[in-house]
Computed example of a mutant assay.
Amino acid sequence: MKVLRLLFLCLLQFSCNSQIAEKINGISFVASRDKVTQAHINPVLNVKANYAAVMPFGFIRNLTASNVVFNTDRQWFGETRSGAKQYSELLHKNGIKVMIKPQIWVWKGEFTGDIQMETEESWQELEKTYEDFILTYAELAQEVNAEIYCIGTELEEFVKNRPEFWIKLIAKVKTVYTGKLTYAANWDEYTRTSFWAELDYIGVDAYFPISDAKNPTKIQMSEGWQKWKIQLKNISKKEGKPILFTEFGYRSMDYTGKKPWLVDRGEMEVNLTAQADATQVVFDEFWKEGWFAGGFIWKWFIHYEKSGGIDDNRFTPQNKPAEDVIRNNYGDY
Rank of each mutant, 00 (worst) to 15 (best):
L199C: 04
Q231A: 13
V3D: 14
S32D: 14
R314L: 07
Y183P: 01
T182C: 10
K218S: 06
G83F: 03
A146F: 02
N328V: 00
Y330T: 08
F111Y: 15
I60T: 02
Y333N: 00
Y255E: 09
D114K: 11
P43H: 10
A213R: 09
W105Q: 07
D332Y: 12
A213N: 14
E189H: 07
S18R: 13
E139Q: 11
E189I: 06
E121K: 14
P43M: 03
T37H: 12
L12D: 10
Y333F: 11
P216T: 04
V204F: 01
T153D: 12
N42E: 15
V270E: 09
R192M: 00
Y304F: 11
P102F: 02
E147G: 00
D205Q: 13
A146V: 00
R61A: 14
K35M: 02
G294E: 01
T246R: 06
Y207F: 12
H40Q: 09
M221C: 05
I202N: 04
T136S: 11
Q116H: 14
L9Q: 13
D254E: 15
T193L: 05
P242I: 07
F296M: 03
W105Y: 13
L90P: 09
M55H: 02
I202A: 07
R265H: 13
I151W: 09
Y190D: 00
A185V: 11
Q280A: 00
T217Q: 13
L140F: 01
R61K: 14
H92V: 00
M55D: 01
V325Y: 01
C10S: 14
S222D: 01
H303L: 11
T37D: 12
G109L: 08
K214H: 13
G109P: 00
L11P: 03
K227L: 13
T316G: 01
N271G: 05
G294F: 07
W298Y: 12
P209S: 11
Y201E: 05
T153V: 09
D312H: 05
N329I: 09
N161A: 09
F165D: 08
K237T: 09
E247K: 02
V36W: 04
V98F: 00
F292G: 10
